[in-house]
Nucleic acid binder design. Structure first.
Length: 157
DNA sequence: TAATAATTACTCT
DNA sequence: AGAGTAATTATTA
């Protein structure tokens, strides 16, 4: 079985993509963004369920993706991912705290690189990782996007 | 091996 | 208090 592409349209956000590997694990995810559908659609039934849950999430519903299997790598990235999964909904951590939780105190900068490179949002709540003072950055989508994501979880920022 | 990164803490106005 | 600079860690070319 080959990797599967799941597309979902989130009203007010755009179209996001989720890639599932042969075992049904998520190894890549792209946040919803205004963009035309490429015509590829979710074929399998679990994929449709996943798309529905994602739409609910971006509508403000408190859904959890804890039962969604993620393709978490070994090493530093894996530790960061696992540490991030322990962050409850509605809480935010700083890059430095995330690094400390992962077992690498002082690796705040590397944690930032991990969050930037990691494409597993919103399964991995990388939007809950903020700077020590302020909101931090959010790459190409802009901090406003990050603020909206946090508002979905009733986080005042 | 050198450069990079979605940071952090300290120092000097 | 505010702005600027150096420091520390892991990954990538």
């Amino acid at each position: 079985m080959k990797p599967t592409l799941v597309q979902y349209a989130a009203p007010g956000w755009g179209v996001g993509e989720v890639w599932l590997d042969e075992d049904g694990r998520v190894f890549h995810s792209e946040l919803p963004r205004p963009r035309p559908l490429s015509g590829l659609r979710a074929g399998s039934e679990p994929a449709q369920t996943l798309a529905g849950r994602l739409q609910a999430f971006f509508a403000g519903v408190a859904v959890s993706f804890h039962d969604v299997p993620l393709a978490i790598p070994d090493g530093f990235y894996g530790d960061c991912a696992r540490a991030l999964l322990t962050v409850p909904r509605g809480e935010v951590v700083t890059y430095g705290e995330l690094a400390a939780l992962a077992g690498y105190p002082g690796a705040a900068r590397a944690a930032g690189t991990f969050c930037a490179r990691c494409d597993l949002a919103p399964f991995l709540p990388v939007h809950r990782v903020v700077s020590a003072s302020g909101l931090g950055s959010w790459g190409d989508l802009g901090v406003e996007y990050k603020r909206r994501l946090l508002e979905l979880e009733d986080v005042a920022f």
